[in-house]
């Protein structure tokens, strides 16, 4: 019973933060409160995704090897995106800068 309540509390709190985060995100962007909207949105989404991974998908209870899988995936994605975007931002013969 105790375990049930503890889990229920965690799930409910996570749900509240997720919904609240989405509303907050909308309010901040629409009212132009966030100075760097892209970074703000990335931060909120990253935080929400971490909550889902840790508490809904129970990544915190998995062994290190499973924890490493999303982390490595994230690092590789960052490498791909950083290179792709940097190459686009740089002046190139094919794309007028």
């Amino acid at each position: 019973m105790e375990r049930f309540r503890a889990s229920l509390t965690i799930y409910t709190a996570t749900w509240l933060i997720l919904v609240g985060g989405a509303v907050l995100e909308a309010v901040f962007i629409l009212n132009r409160i966030a100075r760097w909207p892209e970074l703000f949105v990335l931060g909120v989404s990253g935080f929400q995704a971490s909550l889902i991974l840790l508490f809904y998908m129970h990544l915190r209870d998995e062994p290190t090897s499973v924890k490493a899988m999303p982390v490595v995936t994230l690092l590789l994605l960052i490498a791909l995106l950083a290179s792709a975007i940097t190459s686009v931002l740089a002046c190139t013969p094919y794309i007028p800068g």
């Binding site: 995100e25 909308a26 962007i29 909207p37 949105v41 989404s45 995704a49 809904y56």
Partner: peptide, 22 residues
């Protein structure tokens, strides 16, 4: 299946601001 649904939800937290806010 819960893990899968979590992943679907996780993707959405990025898609929502991308297409509705930015």
């Amino acid at each position: 299946i819960g893990l899968y649904l979590g992943m679907v939800e996780m993707i959405w937290v990025f898609l929502f601001p991308m297409f509705y806010l930015l």
